[in-house]
Write a protein that binds this DNA or RNA. Sequence first.
DNA 1: GGAGACATGTAAACTGTTACATGATTAG
DNA 2: CTAATCATGTAACAGTTTACATGTCTCC
Lengths: 181, 181
Amino acid sequence: MSLQHAILTALLEKPSSGLDLTRRFDRSIGYFWTATHQQIYHELARLEDSGLIRAIPAERPAQGQRKEYEVLPAGRAELTAWVARSEDPRRSREPLLLRLRAAAVVGTGSGGGLAAELERHLELHRRQLAEYEEIEKRDFPEPRDAAAEPDRLRHLVLRAGIELENFWITWLDRALTSLRQ
Amino acid sequence: MSLQHAILTALLEKPSSGLDLTRRFDRSIGYFWTATHQQIYHELARLEDSGLIRAIPAERPAQGQRKEYEVLPAGRAELTAWVARSEDPRRSREPLLLRLRAAAVVGTGSGGGLAAELERHLELHRRQLAEYEEIEKRDFPEPRDAAAEPDRLRHLVLRAGIELENFWITWLDRALTSLRQ
DNA sequence: GGAGACATGTAAACTGTTACATGATTAG
DNA sequence: CTAATCATGTAACAGTTTACATGTCTCC
């Protein structure tokens, strides 16, 4: 159900069309929950059916026309309830760790291919970190404790992203050293 | 496809029945890739169909009877190829971070429910960390660099688990402080 | 022979991805 | 008018979860 809640959050931040949402899921919201445009259109239809959002009436309601949605009171209520709901953390799925474990069994075959792959991932994580740090500099210039709650929460989420990327960078670096040993 | 590769790895480590695998997916392998028994039986059947594994012939081949599988050469070859294959990291899905972001929009409603939930997650991560540290003490007593490659790789994977749990513990602690402010 | 654990499996629903279809608008 | 882009959608499939079905073995 998380995707519906992600969409509700995004729409509360700003009423949007399906394509707008798709773009925001390529950054921002999407850093912690991805979705394709097909999935988003699908969930928008379901959310509208259940009365949690509605399409803002337009002059020209035709196919191929931009359709903007906004959250209804029932949608806000559902999101508020979800925030405090008890939900176990999903058990993680990390294909890269799985692969190292497979490498421990079948060997790295001189290690070249695996090392190249780890380096590629390292570079991707470095880029993501740079992007997050750019956002932090731009959006959260004040010290964290000084801000009001909404900004404190948003900053916390961004910090989680930054620290996760830092973890991967440190870990991949060490893995590469160990692989070359 | 990762589940099939996880199963191949597990079976190379030790030929097993479906239920054995299910148990190992509740710990060990399962720390980085989870699966239910239904899914495991399904993938075992597919792997057998594609000739990557085979059921070890038994005396009494009946339903409700234990059926043990082992990896065939084609299966080992597939796993070896996968280890060095290029594959983008999956974009992450973190419902908890999504929830904090939703909280930034709809408010925390005095914060009680959300704080309790964060505390619950904190406790779960502390337990997982303790479990990992127990395993480290038991399986990797020597310094990391001294060991041979297979053990170095396995230790690296475990260290990733430990450091990820440490990240969550630190972050959740900070989030709780911020929420109570 | 009955209870409970062991073991394998089927079916349906849900979630997510990939490929494709189609109309509207805008720039040249 | 044409090409490119914007925008919404359908269809098929793959992956995952949940609920249920069924047979076997062991202990009492």
